[in-house]
């Protein structure tokens, strides 16, 4: 048997309007809690994008020995170009390497520029298919290491491994933060509902006296709890959105170039997930707060 849902919605709406200060305070508290969670998710989203970008950087630097002859270098270059997953190979001489460093550094007084050109190793810069997996790159690194002319191979995996560790740490921290946020949502909504229950004691007594079932009495409070949770999460998403636009507007373009990725906002499923989680947590909190209805 179902009670008329429109009665529950109307009573929930009336309850929120009558106790709007109480609910506004609760929603503000929930917004603050969800902003913390949302900010952590936002950082994680961008760190993961950087990690993905660098994991699939599509670049390998092959440092050549000083003793490597032009013939050896050419042979290595040709062999590399014939390797599956390699799209282009560029030979960078010691001189070109120093010039590029000078160009990027832009400081003529840099002591490194005073070093002889031999201090800058010649390299073969290899453009790799971004979709080449870790195993493919590992194989290429192993094979290159065995060549006579090759001093060392840099696949930039050290960076991506560090980044991956940072992301894993961030995920764990976000998980803990989620628990704290969930607990605070339960506490805030539960307290608000208990207070609303106390303020509407007569209403509940009347409903019980005229034969309302517990489910009928509880339904508006559950809707109110759900609305609070959803509104708190929505408020947090909106606030984060505004902050994100402000920060992105002031972000240095060179930083974006350096990181290789544009800063991105939370994906739509994370936004929907936050709002749905807020609504669900609000309902659960209200349900817990309603365990002891007024006895008549």
């Amino acid at each position: 048997m179902f009670d008329n849902p429109s009665h529950a919605t109307r009573r929930a709406r009336q309850g929120i309007l009558r106790e709007w200060r109480l609910f506004a305070l609760s929603i503000f508290s929930l917004t603050v809690a969800f902003v913390c969670l949302g900010a952590a998710l936002l950082v994680m989203t961008n760190l993961r994008a950087i990690e993905t970008r660098w994991t699939h950087a599509g670049r390998v630097s092959v440092f050549l020995k000083e003793s490597a002859t032009d013939a050896e270098i050419e042979k290595t270059k040709v062999a590399l170009e014939a390797t599956a997953g390699v799209s282009h190979v560029t030979y960078v001489t010691s001189e070109a390497a120093r010039d590029e460093y000078a160009k990027n550094e832009g400081n003529a007084n840099d002591p490194l520029l005073a070093l002889p050109k031999e201090a800058f190793s010649p390299t073969l810069e290899v453009d790799v298919d971004p979709n080449l997996d870790d195993k493919g790159i590992e194989d290429m690194e192993a094979k290159l290491g065995q060549l006579q002319a090759v001093e060392s191979v840099e696949t930039y995996r050290t960076w991506t491994n560090r980044l991956a560790r940072l992301v894993r740490g961030g995920v764990a921290a976000s998980g803990l933060l989620s628990l704290v946020v969930f607990a605070s949502v339960l506490a805030v909504v539960g307290s608000t509902i208990r207070l609303a229950l106390q303020r509407r004691k007569t209403e509940i007594e009347v409903l019980k006296l005229v034969g309302a079932t517990d489910a009928y009495i509880k339904r508006p409070f559950l809707l109110e709890g759900s609305a609070q949770g959803a509104a708190g999460a929505t408020g947090a998403v909106l606030l984060l959105g505004v902050l994100f636009l402000l920060v992105r507007g002031r972000m240095d373009g060179e930083l974006t170039t350096l990181l290789g990725v544009e800063p991105t906002f939370l994906p739509w499923f994370a936004v929907v997930g936050m709002v749905v989680t807020g609504a669900l947590l609000g309902t659960i909190a209200a349900s817990l707060g309603l365990r002891k209805l007024v006895a008549v």
Partner: peptide, 30 residues
């Protein structure tokens, strides 16, 4: 059981911020 019994109290037990109509209609809405 309570839907078959009407109860009136000394203290009225009305919901003060409800209208007269709402206070009476609640019995039938249930």
């Amino acid at each position: 059981l309570r839907r078959n019994i009407g109860v009136v109290f000394q203290q009225f037990k009305l919901v003060e911020n409800w209208s007269v109509f709402e206070n009476v209609a609640v019995t039938l809405e249930v």
